[in-house]
């Protein structure tokens, strides 16, 4: 473990925002985190604990107020097609077809049309949307839209996938289905995945490591290794063990947050 160099490294990373009224708000207090190449890490925590801020720092949408974020040893200075963000609201282009959306990144890279098309079709095959390539996003269900977004990301062959609550807007059945799909894609293409969720079960189903965060100020409460092989059977006893573990910890975080809120009133 120690010989392996980490893919993503956060050292003493800190982020504060200044509100419109000039108050300084700490979104992420100094924290360290290392993520290995090919690892699947989940960030969980109650809303407002800085999950989005943290993933935005890693993806290059935000710059840290202090400390450093590096990917492959290089400081993250902005968005990069090698590490792609997948959003809860899909971020698809409504005027482009499914195929057109997947082609977007390949066109931006200047890949010749024929090759781009082949690659886009192969990726759409991978996510099971080969039959829907000529549809527009408004004709698709939420789950299909998110699969298009995933295909669009995978088509440019990133080494890291950042996902900020990507399945939060979907119904439970679609969510389970896409979780399994994502695991399959991850096992086939092996990117490093950083996955934000507020759903503890989702984190246990997916993550090799779960980073539990706590609010006020945003920080890491505990890191849990989930030593179960994928795919994980959600009804098994060992799944329930990690579930109990995480829920207990989450309960503590939640109570602390509530108490702090009471004190501050």
């Amino acid at each position: 473990m120690s010989i392996q160099t980490s893919k993503i490294k956060l050292s003493a990373v800190e982020k504060h925002f200044t509100s419109a009224r000039g108050e300084r708000q700490v979104a992420v207090s100094p924290l360290d985190l290392e993520i290995q190449s090919g690892e699947f890490v989940c960030l969980v925590g109650p809303s407002g604990c800085g999950k989005t801020t943290l993933i935005n720092l890693m993806a290059g949408f935000e710059q840290p107020s202090a400390g450093s974020v590096t990917i492959d040893g290089r400081p993250v200075s902005g968005p990069d097609p090698d590490h792609i963000m997948i959003f809860q609201d899909y971020g698809l282009y409504p005027w482009r077809t499914v195929l057109g959306n997947v082609l977007f990144g390949l066109q931006a890279k200047g890949i010749p049309a024929g090759e781009a098309r082949d690659r886009a079709l192969a990726t759409l095959e991978l996510v099971g949307l080969r039959h829907a390539i000529d549809k527009h996003p408004h004709e698709l269900s939420g789950g299909m839209k998110q699969r298009v977004a995933i295909a669009r990301a995978l088509a440019v062959e990133p080494s890291v996938l950042f996902m900020d609550e990507p399945f939060a807007a979907l119904d439970a059945f679609t969510r389970y289905h896409l979780q399994d799909e994502l695991l399959r894609l991850w096992q086939e293409t092996r990117p490093t995945v950083v996955f934000v969720t507020h759903d503890l079960d989702e984190a246990i189903a997916l993550g090799q490591r779960i980073v539990l965060m706590a609010p006020n100020p945003g920080r890491i409460q505990r890191v849990l290794e989930v030593s179960l092989p994928h795919p994980r059977e959600r009804t098994r006893d060992d799944f329930a063990f990690f579930r109990r573990e995480l829920f207990t910890e989450f309960h503590l975080v939640h109570q602390m947050a509530l108490q702090e809120a009471e004190y501050s009133i």
Binding site: A59, F61, G78, P79, D80, P81, H83, I84, M85, F87, D89, Y90, G91, Y93, F104, G105, A108, K109, A149, R152, A153, V156
Partner: peptide, 15 residues
Amino acid sequence: LEPELEEAAACLGAN
């Protein structure tokens, strides 16, 4: 305008 549209473009390597 949804910021995601531009952020996705930036991610995907669009200048």
